[in-house]
Design a protein around this nucleic acid. Structure first.
Lengths: 136, 136, 136, 136
DNA sequence: GTGGTCTAGACCACA
DNA sequence: GTGGTCTAGACCACT
């Protein structure tokens, strides 16, 4: 069996998690984009092929892709396929900082309501970062 | 009726998380007990006041308290309030980690969509932490 | 038959238009918001009732509402209903002008590719404006 | 081969409109003929050049040209190009209005979501129109 | 072969 | 009662 050079997202579903299938797919695509396993312009598996892979209904995959499209994360071309869009959300530095402040604040508040301290959050993020370096 | 000094849990709800409100409340109470932010015998906010605080239906708060009572984590005294019972909640490290993993994941994805790397997030959090230390 | 004081969106579908049902519903909600026939916080018809009204499958209505939710136009609370969200997109004047310039430019280009002059566009918009005044 | 002075139609595609690319091309050709921007005997861009211009699959352009030929609106001469035939296209006022209604509607909705009223849009367009008059 | 739309119907979870 | 998820399957449109 020849190895292919194509990086692929390894999709997998956990039926016991309680998280809906289509959300698990969305999350996995988002994560793959976030850590560079899939790049702008690359094609996602076709609706049907992914449905077969995961042994689920094509409609469920389509729903996930559809939501990703609405959010502007992928572009879809009928008869061609589904592709990661180049949505860059480019902002100037000031705006960037303002956005970061906003989402970080809600992260801290939410985490805080579960009793996590900022120090713990930092440690946890470091763990993730290390984990990702490793994979590279 | 003597006034008690209520140490308050800071509740917060995330409607977008997909986690039902009542479960978010339960989790937050359990976590608060698990790490000692609230102690045996202490009173939880009343159903109505918490409902107002969170702008949700009192039934939803009642459902959360009800489930906590079923599990033996709180005692409800008609006309008086809801109090933490002595029973140790079984929230272990694994559960804690799962919660943290969930909220951190969405934080990373959201920040990532604005182009922030995990390293940047860590730096930013460190800045906030330092800032808060100072204030102490 | 007593008249009710509730302003309602009058939904209607045109099966011959070629426009998918769910998109027609989305458009009608958007238009109703755009010209103030429905306000922030108001509830949309329930999925099932609208489905009956329009004699279509509830899934189709749900799909429309779902897309509106993803776009942040409505908020949905399980077991409660679907409500117009207060998404204000408030920007300062400069940013506002920049946004307006952008969307107007693409409007002009697109219209231009079909041979419409700016004067024609202005006339057409005036017509719409007059039409809406009338309805008030 | 003599160079011809190609009066070019300014094609533009909107992937989000839901209107298939090939139909957008057909419409734009028809509209251009209808209002005299392109005349009988004039040449359309080649399939390949237009495909490159619009960054789409040549098959899609070919399909559009093909349908135009079937309708007798253009003649294709193997190895030479595609030319406007003498046949008057039947685009009437109603069709024109329908196209205009479509693109104007999405313009209004998009602008409306940023809080712009139709009156404001008209004012802004007037400003642009005046600006362009000046330049002449 | 690609995605898009719609239906019918089941089952679940929340308020 | 509300909305949410998933399946099965049909039919359509675009490349």
């Amino acid at each position: 069996m020849a190895e292919t050079t194509l990086k692929k997202i390894e999709f997998s579903l956990d039926p016991k998690s309680g998280v809906p299938f289509y959300k698990q797919i969305i999350l996995q695509v988002e994560m793959a984009i976030a850590d560079g396993r899939i790049l702008t312009g690359e094609q996602l598996p076709t609706v049907r092929s992914l449905a077969v892979d995961l042994s689920i209904n094509p409609n469920t995959v389509a729903r996930a892709y559809n939501e990703l499209e609405i959010r502007g994360i992928v572009n879809t071309q009928q008869g061609t396929g589904t592709f990661i869009s180049g949505k860059k959300t480019k902002l100037d530095e000031i705006e960037r900082e303002r956005v970061l402040a906003g989402i970080t604040q809600s992260f801290i508040i939410k985490a805080g309501s579960y009793g996590f301290s900022i120090a713990e959050l930092i440690e946890y993020l470091k763990g993730i970062e290390a984990h990702m370096e490793e994979k590279k």
